[in-house]
Design a protein around this nucleic acid. Structure first.
Lengths: 344, 344
DNA sequence: TTGTAGGCGTTATCAT
DNA sequence: ATGATAACGCCTACAA
C-alpha cells in the first residue's frame, strides 16, 4: 500500500509537504497540491485511519452498543442520536453485544477505539465499564440501576421508570377491568421488569389482590413469544378469569392478539389488551392496540447533547449529569385505540 | 493516559517486556507478568487500539454498511454474517449510509478502517468503491447491478433477481385472479424494482394486458406507506377493477391490510393480497398474509464464508466469485397463508 | 513555500 | 527472560 512517503519519494519533495497538500493546507502552493493529488491517484494512495487516530489522539467516533439493532425500540434512539452527532461531524458506529457475543464491544471499549460510548446493552457489565471509562472516552450507560458505578467518567442515565406501568394499569382499572393479567417479556429487559413492578404497585394501590396465576412469562419480547404464551391464557379467558391483558411490549401484544383471534376470542369484547412502547405495528393490526408512548426520542436527544457537550469539554460533568437526571424522566402518554373496552 | 512506556518506567524494565507481559507471551516470567499487570492497574493503563492496528497493519474489523439497521430485512443478514465472523474472531461494526448522511461510511472506507467491507447500501457509489477497494480491504457489494466495477478487489454479489416476482404473480393467476394490482415500494429499493419487473413479465407471459392504473406508488416500504397508498385503491376494489394485490413487501401489505379492513373490504373475500419477504409480522396479522421467502440467510452465509476465505487469502478470487455467483440465486418459496382465495 | 525531525503507542526483531 | 531499537503512517512544530 502506498503511503505519503511513497508520494514524497516519487515527487522528490518532503513528506510534510505531501501531508499538508493532501489536507489542503493553505501553506502549500496550488501547483504542488495538484502534483501531489495526481501522484496519490497514480500510486493508489489510501489514507491510513489508524495512523491518523494515533497521531491525533482522537478517533472522532462514538460507539453505540445495543443488544439488537433490528429491534423496533432501537429505531427512535438511533435516529435521534445520529442526527445530533452528524450535526457535529462526529461518526457513529453500532456494535452489538448480547449473550452470545460481547467480545467486539468489549474490545472496542478496552482498546479505546472511540471518543465516547453509549451503552444500551445489558451485557456489558458495570465492572467492565468502570475499568475502562476514562477522560478520553466517557461512557454513557442507559437504562440501568448502575449501583456499582464508581468511575467518574461513567454517566449513568437511569431513565426514570418509577411510574412506568402504573399509568396503563390504572387506565385499565378505570375502564372497569378487575382481572388483569400481565405478560412479562424478556427477563433481562429492565423496561419490561419495571412495567411489571408498576403493575404490581398499582394493583396494591387499588387493593386488588395479586393472582399469581395471572402473571405469565413470555421469556422474550417478540411476536412469537406473545403468540406462544397466549395459548396458555385462552383457558383463563374462556372461563372468565381474565378480562384484560397487559403485555409488556407491543410486539408481545401483536403476537398475542393473533393467537386470541385464532382461538375465536374477540378483542376487546371478550378481553381487552394493551401493549407498551407505541411501536408502529401496534396501530397496524385489527383492532389497533392501545399502548403507551414513552417519548423516548426526547430523552435520547438530551443524552446525545450531553455527550457532545462532554466531548467538547465545555461543561462541567456535574452540571450535565444533573440536567440529564432531570430530563431522563419518561413522559408516558397513553395512546388510546380500540383494543380496550369499558366494562361495568 | 498511561502507556506501556509509563509502566516500563515505573517498574524499570523495558517496554518490550511490558508489551509481551501484557500479551501473556510465554517468553516472559510469571513474576514479571504479575508485576506488570499490577502496575497497569495502578496506572490505569488502557490499550490504544489505533497503535495496535497501525503496528499490525490490520484491524480485524469487518464493516457492514446498511441503509437502516432497524429494517426487518436486515435481521437475517446481520445474524448470519455475525455468526460466521464471530467463529473466526473477527469483529463486525455496523455503519449506516443513507440519503441524509453517508460521510461516516465513506470515511471508514476511504481511510481503510477495516479489513473488509460488506456494502448493502445503495448510497455508496460504485465509483467511490472502485476508488478505495484494495487488497487489504476487499469490498463486497450486494444487490446491485454494479456495471461500473473495475476494481478487482470489489466482489459484486448481484443476487439473482431474475425470477423474483414471477413466482407469486403466477400463483395469483393460477388461483384465478385476473385483475392484479401492484404496489411498488421505495423507488431506490432494487428488490422492489425487480419484483415489479417480474410482475410485468408474468402478465405479459400470460398475455394479460397491463393496466397502468393498477400500478401504485407507495414511495416507501413501511407500514405507513402501505396504509396510505391503499386508500387510493379502495375505489378500484369496490368497483371490481381489482381482485388481487401484490405488495412489494410484507410491511406494505400489513399496512394495506389494515386500511382494507378499516374500509370494510374483506380479505381475501373481496380481494386477495400477497406480500414479499416473509417477515415475521406477515403471519401475525389477520388474515395471515401469503408471501414469499427468499431464503436470504443461505446467501448471506455464502457471502460471509467467501469474505472470510478472501481475508484469509487462501482462495483465488476468481474461484470465490464463481461460487458466489452460483449461490447468489434466490430460492424463493411461496408461503401460503390465508390472504388469498381461489377465484373462478 | 517547503524541509527536518520528533513523536503518537504499540509490536517485532534482534541481541544479550 | 529481558532489553534496545526500529518500524507502522501520519502530523506538526520549527527551521530554512
Amino acid at each position: 500500500m502506498a503511503t505519503i512517503k511513497d508520494i514524497a519519494k516519487l515527487l522528490d519533495i518532503s513528506v510534510s509537504a505531501v501531508s499538508m497538500a493532501l489536507n489542503d493546507s493553505p501553506e502549500i502552493g496550488e501547483k504542488t497540491k495538484i502534483k501531489v493529488r495526481e501522484a496519490a491517484k497514480q500510486l493508489n494512495y489510501i489514507k491510513n485511519g489508524s495512523a491518523i487516530d494515533l497521531q491525533r489522539q482522537k478517533t472522532n467516533i462514538v460507539l453505540l452498543i445495543t443488544d439488537n439493532p433490528t429491534r423496533s425500540y432501537f429505531t427512535d434512539s438511533l435516529q435521534v442520536i445520529q442526527q445530533e452527532l452528524i450535526a457535529k461531524h462526529i461518526d457513529l458506529v453500532i456494535i452489538t453485544a448480547n449473550d452470545k457475543h460481547k467480545g467486539t464491544a468489549e474490545r472496542f471499549i478496552s482498546e479505546n477505539r472511540a471518543d465516547a460510548v453509549i451503552c444500551m446493552s445489558k451485557f456489558i457489565s458495570e465492572e467492565f465499564i468502570n475499568l475502562y471509562a476514562n477522560k478520553n472516552m466517557p461512557v454513557f450507560v442507559l437504562g440501568r440501576a448502575a449501583k456499582l458505578i464508581t468511575n467518574e467518567h461513567v454517566i449513568n442515565v437511569p431513565l426514570d421508570y418509577k411510574r412506568v406501568g402504573e399509568d396503563i394499569t390504572e387506565y385499565l382499572i378505570a375502564k372497569g377491568h378487575r382481572k388483569i393479567a400481565f405478560v412479562r417479556g424478556s427477563r433481562t429487559s429492565i423496561g419490561s421488569n419495571y412495567r411489571y413492578k408498576g403493575y404490581l404497585r398499582t394493583l396494591k394501590k387499588y387493593q386488588f389482590e395479586l393472582d399469581k396465576e395471572l402473571v405469565f412469562e413470555a421469556r422474550g419480547s417478540d411476536y412469537d413469544h406473545g403468540y406462544g404464551i397466549t395459548e396458555s391464557m385462552v383457558e383463563h379467558i374462556a372461563s372468565g378469569r381474565v378480562d384484560g391483558i397487559f403485555y409488556a411490549t407491543d410486539d408481545l401484544a401483536v403476537g398475542g392478539l393473533q393467537k386470541l383471534l385464532e382461538r375465536g376470542i374477540s378483542v376487546p369484547d371478550d378481553v381487552s389488551i394493551v401493549g407498551y412502547n407505541n411501536y408502529p405495528i401496534s396501530r397496524m393490526v385489527t383492532p389497533p392496540i392501545t399502548t403507551v408512548d414513552l417519548h423516548q426520542q426526547q430523552i435520547m436527544r438530551r443524552v446525545a447533547k450531553s455527550l457532545i457537550a462532554m466531548m467538547e469539554g465545555n461543561k462541567a460533568k456535574a452540571e450535565l449529569v444533573q440536567k440529564l437526571q432531570q430530563s431522563a424522566i419518561f413522559h408516558s402518554e397513553i395512546i388510546e385505540r380500540s383494543s380496550v373496552k369499558s366494562r361495568e
